[in-house]
Amino acid sequence: MTAARSARKGTLVAVISTLVVATLLAISIGSSPSWPLVQKAFFDGTYFSTSLPDVIGAFAINIQLFVLAEILILPIGLLIALARSITSPALAPLRIFATIYTDFFRGVPSILLIYVLGFGVPALRLPGVPSEPFFWALVTLVLIYSAYVSEVYRAGIESIHPSQERAARALGLTRFQALRYVVLPQALRRVVPPLLNDFIGLQKDTALVSILGVVEAFKQAQILKSANFNFTPLMVTAVIFLVITIPMTRLVDRLAAKDRATQQGGTR
C-alpha cells in the first residue's frame, strides 16, 4: 500500500519536473528575437504538409534497402563471427580473412566505400557488372554492417561460459553439435538487443544511397529544401524516421527487460 503510494508520488514528481523543464525550455527558446525566423525556416506548417507525401513516397526506397540489407547481414555476420571463432590450425586462413574483413569494414568510412563501389566499379564498364546505385548501396551497407554485426555475434558467443561447451562435449556431442545446439541458442538470445540497435543504425544509414543520385527520403527532403530555401522538409524526414525507430527502441528495451527477468528467474 505504501509502496503503491510512494510510486504514485514518484510519478507525480516526475510529471511536474518534466513539465517545469519543458516550459522553461519553451520560454527561453520562444523569447529569442530570432525564434520567428527559425520557426519559419524549420517548422513551417505549409511546407510540412506539402512535402509530407513526397518524402513518404521516397521513404519506400529506404524501407526496401534496410529490409533487404538486414536479411543479408544477419546470416553473413553470423558466418564471419563463426569464422573468427575457429581454433583449428588448418582453417587459420579463414580466421585471418574474417579478422581482416571486420577490421577493414568497421574501420573504413561508409561514405568512402559507397563512392568507390557506386561510382568506381560501374566506371570499369565490365560486362555483367550492374551499375544500379541501389545495388551498390546495398552491397556497401551489407559489407559494413555485417562486420559490425559479426562482432556482436562474437561477443554473444564468447559470453557463454566454456563449461557449457565442455558439458556438451562430455555428453558426446561433436564440436559442431555443441556450438549448434548449446552455445548458439544461448548466445543469439543474448545479442538480440544489440542486434536491433545496429538495425536502427542501418535504417538511418540507408540515406547513403542518395550520394549515388537515388532520391530517397532524405534526398527528397533536401530537394524540396533547396528549391524553396526552407528546411522544414528535413523535419518531415526526421519525423518519419522517428515513427519507425522509436517503437523499435521500446521493443529493444522490453526484450532486454524480459531477458533479465528470465535469467533472474532461473537462478532463484
Binding site: Y115, G118, F119, G120, V121, P122, A123, R125, S131, E132, P133, S210, I211, L212, G213, V214, V215, K219, I223
Partner: peptide, 19 residues
C-alpha cells in the same frame, strides 16, 4: 526518375560510370 546529386562532380562521376 531523375538522379539528383549533391554536386556536379558526383553527376560527372555518374555519367562516366554509366549510372
Amino acid at each position: 526518375e531523375v538522379a539528383v546529386f549533391d554536386t556536379n562532380d558526383e553527376a560527372l562521376a555518374a555519367l562516366n560510370g554509366g549510372l
